[in-house]
Amino acid sequence: MNDVRYSAPNSLDEASKAMMAAGGAGRILAGGTDLLVQMRSGMQKPGVIVDIKKIDEMMSIQDLGGGSFRIGAAVSGALIGEHKALKKAWPGVVEAINLIGSKQIQGRASAGGNLCNASPAADSGPALVAAGAMLTIHGPNGRREIPVEKLHSGPGRTTLAPGEILVSFTLPARPKGSSDAYLRLIPRTEMDIAVVGVGVNLTISGGKCTAARVGLGAVAPTVLLVEDAGKALVGSSLDDAALEKAAAACRAACKPINDKRGTIEYRTKIAGVLLKRSAAIAIERAKGN
């Protein structure tokens, strides 16, 4: 029998220490909605489970003003969805996180866990990449910050060093006239993994797009920041031609695989379709801001 230990430390230093002590056998438990499935299938056989939900910093949402928020990595989707100010400021990020699984999953699953599981199809990824979220990481050698798109190194792999824990992600302040949106394609209406996911974050000023970032999920080994798509939008009046150019950039950025969830052709096509649709929603929202 492999002995498993469970600990629920109250501080990040303790948690980090516990992970270091466990060597490669430590696993962080936030919502557990991925970890327990992986343990059950035998994909993960942890020696130590470190439950980080007793660490306040990881469980809170801070309003930093000007539309900037810091969200603890272990805060559940349900709590994020209930945070009115956050939802108003970052509807795309919130809707992406709220699309992770059923209401039951939402009760526990966190954006931090969704990110650290490092699936290229994770719903939080494209929206947070589009948002330009910064991650705060706590490790044995102190803290560091990285842009969210630098977290993943491949399917299921992150750039976190041993003992490092994702503490929170910070959404930046944005000028007036900004908003975001996230859309994914799934065969059913719920309970599926994204075949493609697109997050769009943009700012409109004087009828022109002044800033835009596009995140694209499930079409490559990691979530992509599609810089060309953003460039296609910036400076335009967000007319059909600009949207088509951005859609083409998304299609060009795709390096998908054929699998049980979709074909290469389909994913590539849908990346363009969803770019247009989510941009349309973001534009609508930005005009209202």
Binding site: T33, L36, Q104, G107
Partner: peptide, 22 residues
């Protein structure tokens, strides 16, 4: 694996899957 909801319970009033909770 969290895909059917037959194990639904509430934890401090929050709806969760008992199969995905330690």
């Amino acid at each position: 694996s969290g895909d059917c909801g037959a194990c639904s319970i509430t934890l401090d009033g929050r709806l969760v899957c008992a199969c995905l909770m330690l």
